[in-house]
């Protein structure tokens, strides 16, 4: 139900981002989508990858702080106000959105990844909005 997101702490210094992508590439792990939250000192790289467990293992082996977080993937049809419908349902359930980022899944749908204050309630919000989830297998193989 939940998609496992791979998060990595990286310092803002030369070559760290490259080291992450190189490590994943070397181990044949595909990056489906990526988002970077940055501060002046460091960045938080969040990714959906083809094999989250293995991705975490190989990054830790290279000395990175890496972790897996359960996030919710939602398919957003291309019509006006689809995202608004979802956020309205979320706020109705009293949810805070910690972060979110989009990715295209090809075809007609765009998708978003959401981390909210309560993952269980987030599933209800998706249902109430009449939207469908991106199931993990689907996310990893995009």
């Amino acid at each position: 139900m939940y998609v496992k997101q791979l998060s990595v702490f990286i310092e803002n210094r030369e070559g760290r981002m490259e080291k992450v992508t190189e490590t994943l590439a070397k181990n044949n792990i595909n990056i489906v989508c990526i988002s970077l939250a940055d501060t002046s000192e460091y960045g938080m790289l969040r990714m959906i990858v083809s094999d989250p467990e293995e991705g975490k293992r190989v990054l830790k082996e290279e000395g990175f702080s890496a972790m897996l977080t359960d996030v919710v993937g939602v398919k957003l049809p291309h019509y006006f106000g689809a995202l608004n419908k979802l956020t309205r349902e979320m706020s109705a359930l009293g949810l805070n959105i910690e972060y979110m980022y989009a990715f295209t899944s090809g075809g007609d749908n765009a998708s978003i990844i959401i981390k909210s204050s309560d993952n269980v309630k987030a599933l209800d919000a998706v249902k109430n909005a009449g939207l469908s989830l991106v199931v993990p297998e689907e996310a990893y193989s995009l």
């Binding site: 997101q5 702490f9 501060t39 938080m44 969040r46 702080s65 972790m67 972060y99």
Partner: peptide, 15 residues
């Protein structure tokens, strides 16, 4: 050093 035990993927937590 950011240690495994308290590492969070939320920037807010790290701040």
């Amino acid at each position: 050093e950011v240690e495994e035990r308290f590492f969070s993927d939320e920037v807010k937590e790290l701040e």
